[in-house]
Design a protein around this nucleic acid. Sequence first.
RNA 1: GGCCCCAUCGUCUAGUGGUUAGGACUCCAGAUUUUCAAUCUGGCAACCGGAGUUCGACUCUCCGUGGGGUCACCA
Length: 511
Amino acid sequence: MTKEEFKFIRPGKVRVRIAPSPTGFLHIGSARTALFNYLFAKKHQGSFILRIEDTDIERSSPEFEKDILENLKWLGIQWSEGPDIGGEYEPYRQSERKNIYTKYLKKLLDENNAYYCFCSKEEIEAQKQYQMSIGEIPGYNGKCASLLTKEVKKYLSQEKESVIRIRNPLHIKKIVFNDLIRGRLEFDTGLMGDMIIAKNLLSPLYNFAVVIDDFEMKITHVIRGEEHISNTPKQILIQQALGIPKVEYTHLSLILAPDKSKLSKRHGAIPVAEYRKQGYLSETLVNFIAFLGWNPGTEREIFSMASLVKEFSLTKVQKAGAIFNVKRLDYLNGFYIRQKSIDRLTELCLAYFIEAGLIIKQDEKFKIKETKEEISLETLKKIISIYQERLKKLSEISELADFFFKEKLNYDKNRLIWKEMSIQEVKKSLLTSEKLLAKIKPDNWTKENIERVLMPEAEKAKDRGVLLWPLRVALTNKQASASPFEIAEILGKDKTIKRIKQSFESLCLKN
RNA sequence: GGCCCCAUCGUCUAGUGGUUAGGACUCCAGAUUUUCAAUCUGGCAACCGGAGUUCGACUCUCCGUGGGGUCACCA
């Protein structure tokens, strides 16, 4: 822990939260904010709270909330508090806390720190236009600020449309707070008009609900995206009107699209669920996201969640926004795939085979979809193991290994040809392979034996590819693949011989 | 436009007054290899500009420039 950070932290007392609104899927940006909050909490043995900010009923949806919860859990970012539902915690929801906001709203109104405003939207808009036209800063002019109680009551009883505004205390000229990443930040309150904090007693608006909740939930540190910097003075103003303590604010730089704009719904903000579907591992995403704007200051770059917790420090977070670099993500994912045990990797990959319609699962057994022939888990493991170090994303496995599950391959004649070989030479090469392989007894059909039989023959030519390339393509019909010995072993003697014959025949066809 | 934030290789970054400016990804070359990966070795590549402070600035200050955020009865 750095000295600066220490000033603000009492171990065990830290309480942080993430407060997503369920108006979209969990994307990388909010996942990172969640992760940093989580790491900070764990690092200081504190609490990490999930609060769903669904005060905007129009835009919120349970579908999004479900997505947020699921993917947070998948990433291993587990909240440590909330209504208990049998060993698990529900998140807090603002929609379930309305009476709390009402209480504080009434208090503010009673103490005359807030007031009803009956100005129409049109009126406000016109005023704004006018202010801008004469070069003034737009802001509410305070027309309703001095309404008599009698008048307010009258309008209210008439059900005249209204909102609740907070009174901007004139004696406060400047709002200053210390951002753990950015240092001292200062704002001029003169620039802020009396802001609307609620549509009515039952419908608080964002800035108000946040302040109340952070206070009620005893949040010590608010760690959120940079887009909230300008909300912070507003929230501090509300705290002061309410007479409640300030909390520590820290603003994380944004994750940027390749054009340096903010990652947004229409520009590259890919849902976490989508990465998951493509076959990125959660440990990849966690490691990757953590390093977007943070770095332990050493040269180590591979970190599990546990080691991240150990090393994490807010003060080491970069101030500038970071561009999301997919190439690096892929590299990391390849790394983590290579670390997986073959059992676990198989488990993960099977779903992709099934989804691609290559295999089906019936009564706990796997069958090749095309032939209904059973395929053992052992065989599937072998298939996956030979592609383990080639995989960048799990989803690639079905494309890479599809030939294991197909009866006939549509050979590309040219692909069977190695370098400058003629068709005749390719045919001869295939014949040689077939002849040699036929001699191997089925019981001895292992990759070692296959290699032992073929290699001496391949060595005879100055270029091993003369024998091995046509064979490999005969077995796979692919430009690139694992070694023919490994593939032949998995395919079995019969299928191997059959494929060599099929490819030979394809060479005999005109075009 | 107002207010605010930011600025080291193409990208993610280390660096807190004196360094051959380090690492990782990408890219390139070599080794290995039937192919593609993986792996190993090597290479290309950066302090936004200008003033100041200082014996000395990537580092501190100011001014530019550039990029970004935000200006709702959304969150």
